[in-house]
Amino acid sequence: MTLFRRVSNQHHPRRASPGQSPKIPLREWFDSVLFAVVAATLIRWLFMEAFTIPTPSMENSLMVGDFLFVSKLHYGTRTPQTPLQVPLTHQKIWGTNIPSYSTAIQLPSYRLPGFTHVKNGDVVVFNVPPRYLNDGIDYPTDLKTNYIKRCIGIPGDKLEVRQRAVYINGALMPAPPRSEQKYFIKTTEALDANFFRKYEIVNDYRDLNQPTENWKPQEQFNDSTKTTSLVGYTVNTTADVIEKFRTFDWVKGIEPLIDKPGETMPSIYGTPTFHWNHDNFGPLVVPKKGATTPINAQTIAVYGPVIEQYEHNENVTLTPTSISINGKPITSYTFKQDYYFMMGDNRDNSLDSRFWGFVPEDHIVGKAVFVWMSLDPNPANIWNKIRWNRLFRTID
């Protein structure tokens, strides 16, 4: 009899107890959706968040169309600064220009304990600090636009870029194995997109059809038997691909395109006080919590924006030669938090710390850990839409 009752209960709806109304399907659906949203929001905040790569600044380490997971646990999860926000959104409600948040409540942000710290060479997601990179909007820190770059300098490091090579505390920092740089190629063959795609050069090549300092179109190449017109290309690619190109007999010249030391690029951080460009930058010291710097024209050029914008000081007056806080001129300054220096692996096509400065510690989101899906935005055919060789690739 007992067995019969247990089996019977599986085939008949459970009766509601006295005073309890039965759940209707709509209510069950709503409860399921609510649970899923709450669970996803907690996972996204505490443990792991999914991102996609929209630009080529990290190629060839990360490709446009890569989908990756970013760990919040490595460096510690930040407590929310902006709690009034539509779940699972960032700045806007999906598909609209309607803000997905309210700043009516702003909380102090703290970082929960993590099991490591940001290290040299880590691939890091962060909220990019400058306002002009956030559509000119003064977003709260946790809602600023997400960027992904490689950490080159940690707090206290002395950093310098010389002829593209990065030096940390006087020692050469090896370039990431799949990092890209810009080269100029002279060939006797016209190359098309399909050729470059075979070498994973998708977003970064250009047919030079106008005069430049290095190249005049249709330059003539003379040998003992014939005269041939050369074709010029600039490409951003890896050192391994360049070595393959050197083996082709129709490639007549390859040279790296590098800015000269002392040439000032106006858009570079620290100029015009310092004559830096994106291939020759520094030396400068990455700010460290508790470190003190004197205030003068040179330190203001690199640390003035930090003191004014990211140190949570009130009433800062900044000029090229002086800094005042609450009306009092200062002759030295002690940093309140750590900072980091970030660069893209595609060194010649990356808007990074060389252009806009340091990343404050409270802007760090998490560590990129692996690519779980990769879709080619411009595949040669539908069968090549998924980059199968990139699925579940760890990021190093």
Rank of each mutant, 00 (worst) to 15 (best):
Q210Y: 14
D362G: 04
T238S: 15
W45L: 15
P25F: 10
S332C: 09
A40T: 05
N326M: 08
G114C: 11
L46I: 09
V202P: 00
S100I: 10
G114R: 03
K216S: 11
V161T: 00
A40V: 05
H275S: 14
Y340R: 00
P379S: 08
N378R: 13
P294R: 10
F30L: 14
Y233D: 07
R44A: 10
G76K: 04
G65F: 02
R162I: 12
H90W: 15
C151A: 13
N349K: 08
D279T: 01
K260E: 04
F221W: 11
T116V: 07
D396Y: 14
V38Q: 04
V251D: 01
V123N: 00
T334N: 01
P56D: 05
T82W: 06
W250R: 12
T228F: 05
T264F: 00
F51K: 01
R206Y: 12
R390S: 06
N296E: 00
A171G: 07
K226I: 11
Y269W: 15
G262D: 03
V359L: 12
Y303R: 09
I395C: 05
P113N: 13
P256W: 01
P155I: 09
S267W: 06
T2A: 13
P18M: 08
P261E: 00
P130A: 11
G76R: 02
L257W: 04
L107W: 14
R15M: 05
I53L: 05
Q91P: 06
S102D: 08
I364K: 01
V316C: 06
E189R: 12
V118F: 01
L88P: 04
G304P: 02
D157G: 03
F67H: 12
P283M: 03
N222Y: 14
P360R: 13
V128G: 00
L351I: 08
Y147D: 00
I258V: 09
K367Q: 13
F281H: 04
T96I: 04
G19M: 02
A190H: 09
Q210E: 15
F196N: 00
E314R: 12
D31S: 10
T103I: 13
E59L: 02
V302L: 09
F67L: 04
K385S: 10
I105D: 07
S324Q: 06
V365P: 02
T145N: 13
T89S: 11
P294Y: 05
T212H: 07
S374Y: 08
P217E: 07
L191I: 07
S324M: 03
I364N: 02
E314N: 14
